[in-house]
Simulated assay, not measured.
Amino acid sequence: MKTAVVTGSSSGIGAATARQLAAAGYHVFLAARRADRIEALAEEIGGTAVATDVTSAESVAGLAEAVGPRLDVLVNNAGGAFGSAPVAQADAEQWRRMYEVNVIGLMQVTKALLPALIASGAGTILNVGSTAGRIAYEGGAGYTAAKHGTQVVTETLRLELWDQPVRVMEIAPGMVRTDEFALVRFDGDEERAAAVYAGVAEPLVAEDIADIITFMVTRPAHVNLDEVVVRPRAQAAQHKVHRNPR
């Protein structure tokens, strides 16, 4: 049976991806900090829960040990946005947290699992980026900087692994409504979180992204979908979103 690791799999895109990869025949290692959630999901899909903090090298080493010597797919999904202050009022600690999880964490997990991916003979690394990694917007400098980092690390990996049997891909979603992303960004402010999606009849949902991720990693081994940018139909660009009047 093929194996996959999905980081940040306790909710949202990560949990949906774990479910769809399991349905596609993978044994999924669920890596996230909230052990209770991934243990419940592992029982549901027949996977393996490994409590993991991607920002901790020691924790990531434990994940690599649990996975073992061979791995087919790594989905680097762990990430997050914290705060929306302009640069003039930026919180340095929030910026550090975003860089740690979106860039350093991605590097540490990839580094630890790369030998197992190479050993599979046809490994795949898929990094979950964002349209924020491609365009700037007011109040988003910390997050856009981190997600630009995700994109550039992905491009660099593809160059560095050009002679290895490992594909390197990125999916860059636009507006995706999940249970937690906006709530976390606005520090639990439900009104501000809801306003992000106000009037948008059909934003993307986690299952949409998971469906595309599963398609990407299940292409033949010689097919590398370098990057897939996906937005809801209502979002023509970062600043141009169709909203129905109330």
Rank of each mutant, 00 (worst) to 15 (best):
L30E: 07
A112R: 08
A146W: 08
I104T: 09
Y26Q: 01
V230T: 10
A31K: 10
A66H: 12
A24W: 02
Q20L: 15
D187Q: 11
G139H: 05
E160Q: 15
T52Y: 11
I212G: 00
L114H: 00
V128F: 12
L63E: 14
A42N: 09
R219I: 01
N127V: 04
G47M: 07
I213L: 05
E191F: 11
Q94D: 15
A49V: 03
H242F: 15
A57S: 12
A31I: 10
R192N: 13
G8D: 07
P115F: 04
A210R: 00
L183M: 13
F181C: 01
E155M: 07
A90C: 07
A61P: 09
E93T: 11
T218D: 14
G188R: 04
A49K: 02
A64G: 13
Y137D: 08
L21W: 02
P86H: 09
E39A: 15
L117S: 06
E160M: 06
V103F: 01
T150N: 11
A182V: 05
V152Y: 01
D208A: 02
G79I: 03
D53H: 10
E227L: 15
V196H: 04
F82L: 12
R233C: 14
S9R: 06
M175K: 00
V60W: 03
D189V: 08
T144K: 04
V153N: 03
R158Q: 02
L71E: 06
T214A: 12
A198V: 04
R192K: 15
T110P: 01
R19M: 00
Q89I: 00
G174P: 03
N102S: 05
A122H: 08
E138T: 12
V196R: 05
A66N: 09
S10F: 03
T150K: 00
R192H: 14
V153F: 09
A136R: 10
R37G: 12
S84H: 01
A172Y: 08
D91C: 11
E138Q: 14
R231A: 04
A92W: 08
I135G: 02
V176Y: 06
P245A: 14
D36P: 01
V54S: 09
R177Q: 15
A24H: 05
L159M: 12
Y143S: 08
V152R: 14
R134G: 15
D187S: 14
A51H: 05
A40E: 12
V205T: 11
V67L: 13
R134D: 14
H222T: 13
G121A: 13
Q20I: 08
P232M: 08
G8M: 11
